[in-house]
Design a protein around this nucleic acid. Structure first.
Lengths: 333, 333
DNA sequence: CGAAATCATTAAAACGTGTCAATCGGCATC
DNA sequence: GATGCCGATTGACACGTTTTAATGATTTCG
């Protein structure tokens, strides 16, 4: 393993290591003639900068961390795309981490990111325990919440989940449903509890009691969780309508119900959340709540980089998008 | 930004920096009493080790790179899961990169990984240009091909795509189809060309001419590409059956055809590739070719780490899995 | 009881880059 | 022709960790 470093390049180009460094970092400071000479040497020797050394010296790396709940969820994939597009313009890198909805994995990921001295972290937190994040910020790492509202001292980009829950539920109620089920992951996940609160608000607006809504909590917010929920639905008796906290759950529910001979929407109405691409292509096209996923990632990254570039003059912002109801066959009588 | 380093921990614990390093890396070498003292100091000061410094000193980091064609494709998400599970046991990290089927992005990603001095790289190459990879290996970075067969001097884990293409096509032919269309991305992508070769083999076996297969090439192997392909199908006249190089394409084709009033499988049979979870939940459940996605990632990672740990005694292996036909409604008359 | 051996700890030298004060050379001004 | 000035380049040090050879402390054995 031959390690060609900055000083070999320097020797080859007949300059000092300092000049090579300048070519890499502030090309404008070095005379055009020597610059091309150095660039040739770099090409000839196949030199690639040692990121560790550069990070060590500079005190921070040219990477940001993105911690999401589930890389298997197209929602977060779309968010990641937004992040990637902004970041690659500034030739930074994204370290994508998956917390799998587990606080332990989230903590492990954050430790790795802290070790890597990332400039900043975009995170969809697993729960409301902000202590880990606070420690990160104390260490000088900028943090922006993604899909999670925050209070004054930190930036956040989110979508109004209470409004979304209300939208979905009001739509189901307008369709004539009276007994509802809410399928979601652990209530510690804010998206779940907020969407539930929205559902309850809709019930109240409609003059219905809160116990018209039955909670079904499953451990994982994916298709498998959805199938588990369907088992409960089938054994406990079907409600008029089912509201799932995301589309993966809804697809799982839909699948399991169909296999059991239950027809959607005839026997039970169904609505999901996120409006991922697959929802419209499902066996029964899925009604859902649309969110600006790509925008979420994009804007969050812009806020993060702004804070990194000017920590002092940066004013924290909390952005809140509004979700949108998308009606398809699964909830139309 | 306060930087608490190893030497502050040392001072607090009343030992030398070297001892703190030993506690971190070879705890067995330090006496239990001092070890706990150091561990307390670490906790008290909230010390986290500077990964750059340790990477710089060690010459390589404790991370591996994974470069995939499309993070939006559930196939690669499943592969990534396999990788992640193996790697996190050895407490290494995975840097996940998306080449988006573009050689330029792939090259950029590899540069970043080289800068980070990753121990090894798992990659599904965009094309057959191995020069970049060869340079990486010359620099001492282990490389394993994922979902891409290789020749003797490098490890690879792949699935027999020719066999898969044959399986899919033979199945369509057995269903009575005579005129076929093959929808895929650019033929430079090996998965596409191999599956096509398998399709041609099946035609030959059945005694049909090669021009019974019409190629439809789209720029992106996702649902959008599928919709583009469907436009071509509709304007050029429908074949008896359509074989798509992956399920995302097939879902897009299915969707667009349905919207145009074409019924699957009555008007045209359809089969995809990969057997991603959504395929079975589609409007018309999709026939497909199943691949051991998780196993692919898992085994590739094991080979990679084996090579990293013992570069000299390592014998390169080329693993080839066999795919499996999954028949569902989209191809059953 | 002294010497040897074992064990725990330390001091100092790297790793490759970025930074900054210092130097050099060329040029214009007086 | 001396002086000052400015841009280009240099040299040396620092970043935080790991590692190795050496030191100090303690035990074992003759």
């Amino acid at each position: 393993m031959v390690t060609v470093g900055i000083k070999e390049v320097a020797r080859r180009a007949g300059v000092s290591p300092g000049t090579v460094s300048n070519v890499l970092n502030r090309p404008e400071r070095v005379a055009p003639a020597t610059r091309t000479r150095v660039e040739e040497a770099i090409r000839d020797l196949g030199f690639v900068r040692n990121g560790s050394a550069s990070t060590l010296r500079a005190g921070q790396s040219r990477a940001i961390g993105l911690v999401v709940l589930d890389v298997g969820n197209p929602f977060f994939v779309a968010v990641a795309r937004g992040v990637e597009d902004v970041v690659s313009d500034r030739d930074h890198a994204v370290i994508l981490c998956n917390s799998g909805e587990s606080p332990a994995k989230q903590a492990r990921n954050l430790r790795v990111l802290a070790e890597q001295r990332v400039r900043g972290v975009l995170i969809t937190p697993v729960d409301d325990d902000t202590s880990v994040l606070r420690r990160l910020r104390d260490r000088g790492v900028a943090v922006v919440y993604v899909d999670h509202p925050a209070s004054g001292d930190v930036c956040s980009v989110a979508v109004d989940d209470v409004a979304g829950g209300d939208l979905a539920t009001s739509h189901l109620l307008a369709g004539g449903a009276r007994r509802l089920a809410f399928v979601s992951g652990p209530p510690a996940i804010r998206q779940c509890s907020d969407r539930r609160r929205g559902a309850l608000r809709a019930l109240e607006t409609a003059g219905l009691p809160a116990d018209a809504l039955t909670d079904i909590v499953v451990p994982e917010m994916n298709a498998h969780g959805g199938r588990l929920a369907a088992e409960t639905l089938l054994s406990d008796g079907l409600p008029d309508a089912v509201f799932c906290a995301n589309d993966l759950l809804a697809l799982g529910v839909l699948r399991a119900l169909s296999q059991a001979g239950v027809q959607v929407p005839r026997d039970v109405a169904l609505i999901g959340y996120d409006d991922i691409e697959f929802s419209s292509a499902a066996a029964v096209p899925l009604s859902s709540i649309r969110q600006p996923m790509y925008q979420l990632g994009k804007l969050a990254t812009e806020l993060l980089l702004e804070e990194c570039d000017d920590p002092a003059g940066h004013a924290h912002q909390q952005i809140m998008f509004q979700p949108e109801l998308v009606v398809r066959e699964s909830s139309s009588p």
